[in-house]
Computed example of a mutant assay.
Amino acid sequence: MRHVEISGKRLRLREVTAADVDAMHAVYGDPTATEHLPFDPRTREEVEEIVAEAMDAARAEPRRLYVLAVTEADRDDAIGVARLRIDADHPHSAELGLGLRPDHWGRGIGTDLIRLVLAFGFRDLRLHRVWGARSPANTAAQLAMLVAGMVEEGRIRHHVRARGTWRDSVIHSALEDEWEGYRDV
């Protein structure tokens, strides 16, 4: 198992543990926090399963899924979650996913978090491409991705079904050779 812990100026990423269930439920179970995510709010039991699966994935060889707790640099309590899923058929490409508690929105943390995940993906995992999808209505995610150095690629129509309706997704990506100027995390 490869233990992950990455620190930036304001944030830190670390492996999730069973002690993070309540903190992750504060994101995954909150209707406001999940408004633009591709799923309905999760129950605490569902979040327990997500954490258990993440801990199992951390022991897998090769490891294809990283579910990491997001903390402020000088604290250990989780304020969010970051996911990086490596494509099994294309192991130099990975999808990122992020979620933060709403009380931490509006402080530029999303941009810092994306930069930290990109640093982990490109520097530590030697990925070539990292991509993520967002709701077209999530302009905060759009700004965070663009400022972090990701490029908007296009729209996938009716990509996900959440809250009883189909929703498009807008895809953003970063490539390792474009990432050079964004190494300061």
Rank of each mutant, 00 (worst) to 15 (best):
L68W: 02
E48V: 10
E45I: 13
E49M: 05
L68P: 02
A54T: 00
R75A: 09
T43L: 12
H90Y: 15
H36Q: 13
T34Q: 08
I50S: 07
D76K: 10
L65S: 11
T71C: 15
E35S: 14
L98G: 00
V67R: 07
E72V: 12
R75D: 11
F39M: 11
E35G: 03
E95C: 06
R59T: 13
P91K: 09
P62F: 11
L100I: 03
V27R: 06
D103M: 06
G99C: 11
P38R: 13
E61T: 12
A58L: 03
A73D: 04
A23I: 06
I50C: 10
A60S: 09
Y28H: 14
T34S: 10
R75Y: 00
D103G: 08
R44W: 02
R42L: 14
D74T: 14
A54Y: 00
V47K: 05
T32H: 13
E48S: 07
E35R: 15
A94V: 05
P102G: 08
F39H: 14
L68N: 01
P38Q: 06
Y66E: 04
R75I: 01
T71V: 03
L98Q: 01
D30A: 07
G99Q: 04
E49G: 12
A94F: 07
A58M: 08
R64E: 15
T32G: 07
A23D: 15
L100Q: 08
E95P: 03
P91L: 08
A57I: 05
V81F: 03
D89A: 14
A52P: 03
G97I: 04
L96S: 11
L100E: 05
T71N: 04
I86Q: 01
E48T: 08
T71R: 02
V51I: 15
D77M: 07
V51G: 05
G80T: 07
E46F: 02
E49C: 00
R59C: 07
T32E: 15
Y28L: 14
G99P: 03
D103S: 15
P102F: 13
D89V: 10
A52K: 13
R75V: 07
E46C: 11
T32C: 05
